[in-house]
Every structure is written in C-alpha cells, then in structure tokens.
C-alpha cells in the first residue's frame, strides 16, 4: 500500500512542476501573441538569396 503514497507524491510533484513551468511561460510573455510565432517558422527554410541572383527564378515557384 505504501507504494501508492510514493506514487501520489511523485505524480503530484511532477504536476506541480508543470504548473510552475506553465506559470513561468505565461509570465515570460509566451501567451501574449498567439499569431506571429506560428508564422515565424514558415519560409525560413530557404537561405537568404543574394540580390545578384534574383533573376534566377528557380527558387520562386510563382514565376
């Protein structure tokens, strides 16, 4: 039976840690803007293209 107490203590500690992490995340402003971070990861895959090669349109599927 004692193992249950151990389990509960452990799980509660983990839960409290997560709560603390969440509180830290909120306070550090991670929930302030839920729009731009989702866009931030897009389009970064391509390296910055030097201006000279702009006529080369292979990297531009629209052209």
């Amino acid at each position: 039976m004692n193992v249950i107490f151990l389990l509960i203590t452990a799980s509660t500690v983990v839960a409290v840690l997560f709560l603390a992490a969440f509180t830290w995340a909120v306070r550090s402003g991670q929930f302030d803007d839920d729009r731009s971070p989702s866009v931030r990861i897009l389009g970064d895959a391509r390296p910055v293209k030097p201006i000279e090669s702009s006529s080369n349109s292979t990297t531009n599927p629209n052209a």
Partner: peptide
C-alpha cells in the same frame, strides 16, 4: 495576415542593416 508577419520579420533580407525584427501581432 500571416504574410505581413512573415515579411516584417524578415526585413533583414531587404536591408542588411536590420539585425532583427519581431512582430507583436495582437498589438
């Protein structure tokens, strides 16, 4: 829109003197 955010956060590609640009969309 998403494109606006993306463009405004990639300004350093337009102007090398820009080091970093960050958008706060809600504001």
């Amino acid at each position: 829109c998403s494109s606006c955010i993306w463009l405004l956060e990639n300004l350093q590609r337009v102007e090398p003197a820009i080091i970093r640009s960050r958008v706060r969309f809600s504001e």
